[in-house]
Write a protein that binds this DNA or RNA. Structure first.
Lengths: 109, 109
DNA sequence: CAGTATCCAACGCGATACTG
DNA sequence: CAGTATCGCGTTGGATACTG
């Protein structure tokens, strides 16, 4: 296996290349929130979200906080490393809104 | 299927989420170049590269120029839309170099 | 609520071989 | 050089059901 030009970027791409990852981070950029909140904000199944969250936690991008209240509350938030991705997400958001056309957007109300 | 918060970003993520896509664009950011050049710069197989290039061409991100010289020369370059992704790539590059550690980088010379 | 387990279909992707 | 065709396996990922 030949190595590409820059292994770090290569690893970085693989991180955010996983489906939903960027959307999850984008969602988390609006503040810490609970599992079910993210789940309902995105068209993602619980299993996948659980997977992603765990991966992101292991990468040190997401922090999982457990509040042992009576109904246990668990909140996910971005770490510094995760927060640092804001620029990437923003850029992509800008680019998307500028260049992506929603021709296949089923706009049925 | 419930729709996420922002369909455009969603589509944007899916575009760049495909493996190698970002790396290819990154490579192309350094200027127009030929197929074999990209192929040897990245650890990607010809088939995949061909696929990606075609997809990116269809998305209007990459331009394919054919120079009918004696040995036909074909050069790939970024369109405006592709060039506009520079910010995203740059941000990701910065983030990667700052936050990604290469512990699993087999640094054998 | 916050997940985990299982099943299964679809896709991604790499290697290789082949074409013009 | 610049691809395309075929093959086959491993991974993804969605739906569903279940647990604490």
């Amino acid at each position: 296996m030949k190595s590409g030009c820059c292994p770090k970027l290569e690893k970085g791409t693989q991180l955010i290349s996983k489906r939903w990852t960027i959307l999850i981070i984008h969602q988390l950029l609006s503040g810490p929130q609970r599992f079910c909140n993210i789940e309902s904000a995105l068209p993602i199944s619980g299993k996948l979200l659980s997977e992603r969250l765990k991966e992101l936690e292991q990468e040190g991008i997401v922090h999982r906080a457990v509040y042992p209240e009576t109904p246990v509350r668990i909140e996910y938030s971005l770490t510094d490393k995760g927060q640092a991705l804001e620029g990437v997400v923003k850029e992509l958001e800008d680019w998307s809104s500028e260049w992506i056309s929603l021709d296949n957007c089923e706009g049925k109300s």
